[in-house]
């Protein structure tokens, strides 16, 4: 019978906190950059210009249809050889995860925009708005409400995907807990604690978003 002993983890608390800080910070960076790439990708696919549409579509499918673990390794090891740019593990993994997330965000954002009735942008145009104005004032405010649940879902996946950066020795929560597990010979306790830490951050966040959605639903 295995004797659980979580008390032993206390001595690694600074290591865990450090790792958690990196994980959270990393998530913020890749969600923000990912949304940016997503917005570019979405507008690309909706562009009037064929070349832009093709470019955006290529980007989306390339990152959507290959595994993130392969992308991470490829960005760190293969890209420097191909393009001649050295990247730190942190830069390489931030870039890969942002682009990977961006490809999914693109589809969510595009879907949200096209789900808005065409009459809405027509009404904007009839008032004399430019396409940009009607996008900003009429379409996006409505579309964002519809996108939020899916964007949140994708961001949760992004948060958990940061755990993969440990393969490039980025000192995130998983990487640090590997260190702790090796040091303490207590992998079961360590990984249980890590799982609890991820859930402890994500569950309150999802509750917060659910509340926010209800508030946003005003007027519909």
């Amino acid at each position: 019978m295995y004797q659980w002993d979580f008390g032993i983890l206390w001595s690694y608390r600074w290591l865990f906190l450090n790792g958690l800080g990196v994980t959270v910070g990393f998530t913020v960076v890749i969600v923000v950059c990912g949304l940016l790439f997503g917005l570019l990708g979405a507008f690309g696919t909706l562009s009037r210009f064929r070349a832009l549409r093709l470019l955006a579509l290529t980007f989306i499918e390339a990152f959507r249809c290959t595994p993130i673990l392969v992308q991470l390794i490829w960005f760190y090891y293969a890209l420097p050889i191909l393009a001649g740019v050295e990247m730190t593990p942190i830069t390489a993994s931030a870039l890969a995860l942002s682009l990977y997330g961006g490809s999914f965000y693109s589809e969510i954002i595009r879907g949200g925009i096209v789900s808005i009735d065409k009459g809405q942008s027509e009404a904007g145009a009839a008032l004399g708005m430019t396409p940009g104005q009607s996008m900003r004032r009429i379409v996006l405010p409505q579309a964002i409400k519809r996108m939020i649940p899916a964007l949140m879902n994708q961001s949760i996946i992004q948060f958990k995907n940061t755990s993969l950066v440990s393969v490039l020795a980025v000192p995130d929560l998983v990487y640090q807990s590997q260190v702790a597990a090796h040091d303490s010979y207590r992998p079961l306790e360590t990984y249980t604690a890590v799982a609890v830490a991820y859930a402890a951050i994500l569950i309150p966040l999802t509750i917060l978003v659910r509340r926010g959605e209800k508030r946003l639903a005003v007027g519909e």
Binding site: D117, G119, Q120, E122, A123, A125, A126, L127, G128, M129, T130, Q133, R137, I138, P141, Q142, K145, G219, E220
Partner: peptide
């Protein structure tokens, strides 16, 4: 856009902006 600003249009399905109040709808243009 400049040209359309001088012509008003009313649609079969209203196409009001659902995220704005009545007043905001009318103020938007």
């Amino acid at each position: 856009a400049r040209f359309r600003a001088t012509t008003g249009m009313v649609f079969q399905h209203f196409n009001l902006f659902p995220h704005m109040t009545t007043l905001q709808n009318v103020m938007e243009g």
